[in-house]
Design a protein around this nucleic acid. Structure first.
Lengths: 204, 204
DNA sequence: GTCTATAGCCTGATAGAC
DNA sequence: GTCTATCAGGCTATAGAC
């Protein structure tokens, strides 16, 4: 499974999935036609139907592909043996880099949150969020035992993702002159906030 | 403009807008046909074209209507003369209530963030976010002069909205047995976090 | 202001040749 | 595995009667 270097048939299939991810991320399921995807690959719609039985199956396979290619990345930072706050910082940095580097992924997640049926939401939870979410819940329990760890974990993820979701709007809200924030800026800001949240209040 | 009680023509137009908001929020621009909207109102598609020149104009009018009906609500809490932290709490409570009470509105905002062109994003910024955003920026500057007020304001809004965006996914993430959180729970949690962020660290 | 009818195009999907 | 050709149906939008 690891060696064979892109068998000829699998190559077209991979290319279809890649183009489909880009198009679906940009315009959503209803906004993309099978012909659109085929045209991007450079084949006819009929040829695409040789690789996937129907549009729904193509969409689902594209989701699985997009989610799987990001599955491992998020976890690395959480697995280390450093202090809780350092592990949290590692996760935030890695998650910001992921969201910034693969914006198609971020958009697909957003679209699934809006339109995903039960099966696709479970796929998203399983492949993308289940493991890191559990790790952050544990982390939150260590860092702030007095708060609800589950809601806290959601907030950590939310602080990162929301920065990217609202990026298109930020241009129209006053006060921001220069270019959009760099990923490092976002990660640093989120950690500034979280450090304050998790700081033990030793004083009154 | 205030007295005339629903002139006969305006009534159909209002009904079209109302149904369009519901449908567009549920399935997006590409996922809803003009026939769908007309059928919901109980008229033919041709009749709908008497009220709006084309589908794009119908969509834009629906957005304006959905945004306008929420314009005033968010602001009330921010205008009072209480302490900064009380005003923040008032905003969070009001904003959570808005997002929970009008989920069509929340969905439309999400969809616009994904698919909105420049004109519609500016509409969204102007009618929905500009004024409260500016107020929260000012609030953030009062509460934490050492942090970036703009990013901080985004985070406040993000903490609230993200709780609702991820609600469909939460069902598939471990640890949550009971029913989804009530709006009051979300508001209280967000304020718990923000109170910690804004607490002046008097001790080392 | 609403209807029926229809033009012209795009859609998902299939048949059959190569 | 890919093509051309095609089908049946849905789409936006318009024409014209009432």
């Amino acid at each position: 499974m690891a060696l064979r270097p892109a068998s000829p048939e699998g190559d077209t299939r991979q290319q279809i999935l890649q183009r489909a991810i880009t198009l679906f991320a940009g315009a959503g399921y209803a906004g993309v036609s099978v012909r659109d995807v085929a045209a991007q690959v450079g084949i006819s719609a009929a040829a695409l139907y040789h690789h996937f039985p129907d549009k729904q199956a193509l969409y689902l396979a594209a989701m699985e592909h997009a989610f799987a290619r990001n599955e491992s990345g998020i976890l690395a930072a959480l697995e280390s043996e450093r202090s809780p706050l350092e592990r949290l910082s590692g996760f935030v940095t890695g998650f910001v880099a992921l969201a910034a580097g693969d914006q198609e992924f971020s958009k697909l997640v957003q679209r699934e949150l809006l339109d995903g049926d039960e099966a696709r939401l479970e796929l998203l939870a399983e492949h993308v969020f289940r493991h890191p979410h559990a790790a952050i819940v544990a982390l939150a329990r260590e860092l702030a035992p007095d708060l609800d760890s589950y809601i806290l974990a959601d907030s950590v993820i939310g602080l990162v993702l929301f920065s990217f979701q609202t990026a298109p709007l930020r241009r129209y809200l006053a006060g921001r002159a220069g270019p959009p924030e760099r990923p490092e800026d976002i990660a640093r800001h989120v950690m500034t906030l979280l450090t304050r949240v998790f700081a033990r209040q030793d004083a009154p």
